[in-house]
Amino acid sequence: MGGPISSKYYLISKKDLQRLLDSLSKKMPLFAPVKHGKDFNFKRLESGDKLDIAGYTNTEYPPRGMFLPEGEAVLEYNKGKFSENFFKGKAAVFGIRPCDVHALLVLDRVMLGHDHFESHYKRRRENTLVFPLVCGTPGENCFCDSMLTRNLVESFDLLFTDIGHHYHVEPGSKAGLEIIAANKGLFQESVHKAAIVEVPCKKKLDTANLPGILAKARASGVWDEVAKQCVSCASCTFSCPTCYCFSLVHDSGIADPEHVKVIRELDYCMLLRYSRVAGGLVFREPRKERVQQFFYHKLAYGPENEGRFHCVGCGRCITECMAHIDITDVIGRIRDEHDKRK
């Protein structure tokens, strides 16, 4: 991670990129988009596994899993003692899109800011190399243009752009430069910055004054309409790269119930259980309030607390919602209502 660190650029052929990934995967767990059926998802690439990203726009599920893995045992209790278990060593992720790197920047503000930091996320984030891959043609539901998450000037180790036979490589950190130095034979120097045709996104979300508009829109009938469609399946919160809410669950086996692992599991504000306290009271019961919570957190509370929108325009919530709820459409309707009232 770091800022613009070098004025030099590099090129690497697609064959040599494979060699680079093979070499890296021998030293640390390396994750890359892997196709399974119709979808790509980040999976571990073992040495010798061929990188095949033909047809890759973005992964079905976010790369959150490398930084906030589902079901991580963060704490252990055995024979009267507690011990906190941390991720050891290093890891790397190749092919993550700029919008998803922006999502990591949002998570950084949440997990590493505000007086406390979350020690497990911190350990993984500090020890994972990030090799993003710039987008040419966006997916059907992308709107990164609107959320200003299309470009990256910082927070990567090596930034890759597909320019045909080669990838253009821009180093972004000391670690990135070290990798180039250690694999000199694979890289050629280049004086040009990467230049590709950026096809604009089809969907748009106007963010001007959005937190203020949302603050006044709590009673809008648009939320009732959305709540009528929503089945509270939590697919949106699951597929969102900036959703991070979690529960700490005590787990043990029946053979030794007092040897306990405390598991950090993702939780979803769309579900009733999310706000249920002992005794059964659910603080956020009506579906409309839970629907509002998702939109408001991404577009109002998020900017108020972390200084930037939590939504990065990846479009996954639109792709995953079986009830056809589209965030760009919902916000469009809220804005129309607001403009009519003026």
Binding site: V110, M111, H114, D115, H116, E118, Y244, C245, F246, S247, L248, D267, C269, Y274, S275, R276, V277, F283
Partner: peptide
Amino acid sequence: LMQCGIGKCG
């Protein structure tokens, strides 16, 4: 409902 106590779990 509180779980982490440090403003992270949401």
